[in-house]
């Protein structure tokens, strides 16, 4: 019962937002009478949503986008978290890498799409590359920040309690102490990765939600475009909720 009530409270703002958007959307149609290929009604879009679910194409496209973003994000985390842990502890390594990172960071992952296509073609590798770039820096920087914010006294405590090697100090003190920050980086980067994969698919793909949208534009099916957009928004909200939920179990912050 309490879980139900909690869910209701969490979902209510979204019900409100969806209702408002639908009403405004309908009003725009009532007053401007656009051609359905430019702006279909909410009802027609909903029907198209069902159709795309029924013929399976929505699953295929969503699955394609999710698969890419997830594998690239995971790959990125596997590189960025260990590198960030070491960078946060080594002044030398930070001095060497920081200027390079500062130069690359302002370049949006979207700006890498043309190069990704030139280098990797329109296959999976190029898209994974773009998402990797987009997720790498948020994870790296939040990991470094997490390590740097560790109270040095905790590191001393780890040492006097028997962490003799760098490795055991990293494993038993530095990594757990930095997890709240690392989790923030993982959550934020999943969002940026999700945005980047859609953009990459708009430009060069044969599947994915970005492709669904781009293709909808080409064949003048605004209802396909809208279904794709709605799916992106819904999933984005779900990921964020999911990360916040597991965060409570994975990190120790009060």
């Amino acid at each position: 019962m309490r879980i139900l009530k909690y869910l209701m409270l969490k979902l209510l703002p979204f019900v409100y937002a969806i209702t408002l958007i639908t009403v405004v959307w309908q009003l725009v149609i009532v007053f401007t009478h656009p051609h359905p290929s430019i702006l279909p009604t909410p009802w027609a879009t909903a029907k198209n949503f069902i159709t795309l679910i029924e013929n399976g194409s929505l699953f295929i496209h969503t699955g394609a986008s999710l698969g890419r973003v997830f594998s690239a994000w995971l790959l990125s985390a596997c590189v960025a978290v260990p590198l960030g842990l070491i960078m946060g502890r080594s002044i030398l390594l930070e001095r060497i890498l920081d200027p390079i990172i500062e130069l690359f960071r302002p370049i949006s992952p979207l700006a890498w799409i043309p190069l990704a296509i030139l280098w990797f073609g329109i296959g999976e590798a190029g898209k994974i590359f773009v998402v990797f770039i987009g997720t790498f820096f948020p994870i790296l920087l939040s990991t470094v920040a997490g390590v740097k914010s560790i109270d040095p006294i905790l590191i001393n405590a780890g040492k006097v309690l028997g962490c003799r090697s760098h490795f055991s100090l990293f494993r038993k003190v530095i990594f757990p102490a930095a997890t709240p920050n690392i989790m923030v980086g993982l959550r934020i980067s999943f969002g940026t990765g999700w945005a980047a994969i859609i953009a990459a698919e708009l430009v060069a793909a044969r599947s994915g939600l970005g492709y669904l949208i781009a293709n909808g534009m080409e064949i003048l099916r605004a209802d396909h475009v809208l279904v794709g957009m709605i799916m992106i928004g819904l999933l984005g909200v779900c990921f964020d909720a999911f990360f916040r939920f597991i965060n409570r179990y994975l990190t120790w912050q009060a």
Binding site: N156, A157, V160, L161, G162, A177, T179, T251, W252, Q253
Partner: peptide, 15 residues
């Protein structure tokens, strides 16, 4: 580990 230490600010591991 044969020399233990207790710190003023406790230095407990919050996780």
């Amino acid at each position: 580990i044969d020399r233990g230490m207790v710190f003023q600010s406790y230095a407990l591991f919050p996780w």
